[in-house]
């Protein structure tokens, strides 16, 4: 058994997949892992992440499996699950072997590798969809918008294109406080990621120096009033509210924060 040891990132895993196919490995005798584990009879080989190889793998996935399924594979890799690299590799190998049509990569759900990748992608997709709605931007001085999230999956890369498409002429920052990664979108330009930015991307309350704009407070108050006024008292049901909007999102949301 040969195990390719990949960096925990999309580039890392895709480069591993590239290597496995380049060397025409038999998938039953090959695996991808993020960490070395004391396995008997296993030989480990490290793979360097490589931008060019990543792009080539991505293109192949798009061409062979279609946009939706390729996105699902990427989403699966945003998970913190240690088995994600193997699940994605196994699914890709299975799809290529079956020569499946675009949009049918995950048909074979009875197969455990495929099911694993599918489950990871579904959980990540759910959180992504939640966050598309639950992210809250606050306006800083100079009209910069600033949002903080603390998700289970590494989703900033998926959220940035979404917000860049709808807010093209806004300067905005989207900061993942758990992973210390910040998406930066300058108005009218391409977005990029900054790692390890720490307190540079924090409000005074969190030990940083960013300052809210004059108007910000007013809109926060307006939105809080709106959320209260829209509820129908006769239908009061906080359990349902909690099911639809889990508690872990709330610490980052304007309408749940205590008014400062």
């Amino acid at each position: 058994m040969l195990i390719y040891l990949c960096e925990d990132s999309l580039e890392g895993v895709f480069s591993g997949i590239y290597k496995a196919f380049e060397e025409k490995r038999d998938k039953n005798d090959t695996a991808l892992a993020l960490q070395e584990e004391p396995l008997l009879f296993a030989e480990y080989q490290s793979v360097e992440p490589d931008a060019d190889r990543t792009r080539r793998v991505m293109n192949t996935l798009l061409r062979r499996f279609g946009e939706e399924d390729a996105l699902s594979l990427c989403l699966a890799l945003s998970s913190e699950d240690p088995g994600k690299a193997q699940a994605v590799y196994g699914t890709v190998a299975d799809g290529l072997r079956r020569n499946c049509r675009p949009g049918h990569l995950f048909d074979n759900l009875a197969e455990s590798t495929v099911h694993k990748a599918f489950s990871l992608a579904r959980a990540a997709g759910r959180e992504l969809h939640h966050l598309q709605g639950f992210v809250r931007f606050e306006e800083l001085e100079q009209k910069v918008l600033y949002g903080v999230i603390g998700p289970k999956h590494n989703l900033v890369t998926f959220l940035m294109p979404h917000f860049a498409d709808r807010l093209p002429m806004e300067h905005f920052l989207l900061y993942d406080a758990v992973r210390d990664i910040c998406g930066v979108h300058p108005a009218g330009a391409a977005w990029y990621l900054q790692k390890g930015s720490g307190e540079r991307f924090a409000l005074p309350g969190a030990g940083g120096t960013l300052r809210l704009s004059e108007e910000e407070k007013q809109y926060q108050t307006l939105f809080r009033h709106f959320c209260q006024a829209i509820a129908i008292r006769e239908r009061y049901c906080p359990e349902l509210q909690k099911k639809m909007l889990p508690l872990r999102y709330r610490e980052y949301m304007t309408e749940w924060k205590k008014q400062s």
Binding site: G133, C227, Q228, A231, I232, C237, P238, L240, Q241
Partner: peptide, 12 residues
């Protein structure tokens, strides 16, 4: 996309 949920559990 649902952006929030009010205390009656309905989507905002």
């Amino acid at each position: 996309i649902c952006h929030s949920f009010s205390s009656d559990g309905r989507c905002i």
